Simulated scan of single mutants.
Amino acid sequence: MDRTMLRDDQWARIEQLLPGKKGDPGRTAKDNRRFVEAVLWIMRTGSPWRDLPKELGHWHRTYVRFARWREKGVWERVATALQGDADMEHLFIDSTIVRAHQHSAGAQKKAGQQEIGRSRGGLTTKLHVAVDALGNPLRVILSAGQVADIEQAAALIQDQPAEFIVADKGYDSDAFVESITTQGSQAVIPPRSNRLNPRSFDRHIYKSCNLIERFFCRIKQFRRIATRYDKLAASFLSFIHLACTIVWLA
């Protein structure tokens, strides 16, 4: 394949975070780079696994390996390992809706809740995200599309030592603001228009909320994330973790 995604310097940053390196049990990691490029190709194009180019490996073996790394938490672990350089002056939280393709429905009931719900847009999944002061991702939570943003707010900021936590008025809740204050942060959340005693907030800091919107735009350049095709929430979340890794490597 002439068109690959990872530069040599980017690969060097994650190579030792992947399974199969010297000292690990099992097979060697000599083809890890080609395998990661294969998964990136699937994520970028939104193609079915069966359409994977032969130069990137056999589609079924590639999928099985992707699923194995998913179950072991490899994709999330790599994304988390790159967060050491996070700028925690500001923490921005928000959510975005992802349309679920009809092929994403129909997971077996024994697999549990797959975070696909119905809203005015049809079948949808919602991504609840927290990013740092530079717009780099720190936490992603999946929910069904109809779930309110405030329901995942506490989980997004838990153990995140930011000086300011910034969100839109959808997160304007006395209980949530109190939880922000309790953990030693300052809330920058505009009040709802129906508040009898509107709370003041730092408008200058709030103007930087576009950082999280820009993050959403970046990861939705990957067609496998702009539209959900995966039946399993764990598979879809693995692609999101991989997209977050690419953002950190940029």
Rank of each mutant, 00 (worst) to 15 (best):
H204D: 12
P190V: 00
E213F: 06
C217Q: 15
S208K: 13
F222N: 14
S193H: 13
P198N: 00
L211S: 07
R224D: 12
I212E: 10
L211E: 04
A187P: 12
S185W: 00
R192I: 05
Q221C: 11
R199E: 04
C209T: 08
V188I: 09
N197C: 03
E213L: 05
G184N: 05
F201I: 02
P190A: 05
R224V: 11
F215C: 03
E213T: 08
S208V: 01
I225T: 09
P198V: 04
R224L: 12
L196F: 08
C217E: 14
N197A: 06
V188T: 04
Q221V: 10
N197Y: 07
N210M: 05
G184Y: 05
I205S: 00
G184H: 05
D202H: 02
C217K: 13
I212D: 12
C209D: 05
I225K: 09
I189R: 03
N197M: 07
R214Q: 12
I219M: 04
L211A: 13
D202V: 01
I205R: 14
L196E: 14
R223F: 13
R224G: 12
I225D: 07
Q221W: 09
I212M: 01
C217I: 08
D202K: 01
H204T: 08
N194T: 13
N194E: 12
G184A: 14
R223W: 15
C217F: 11
V188H: 02
L211N: 07
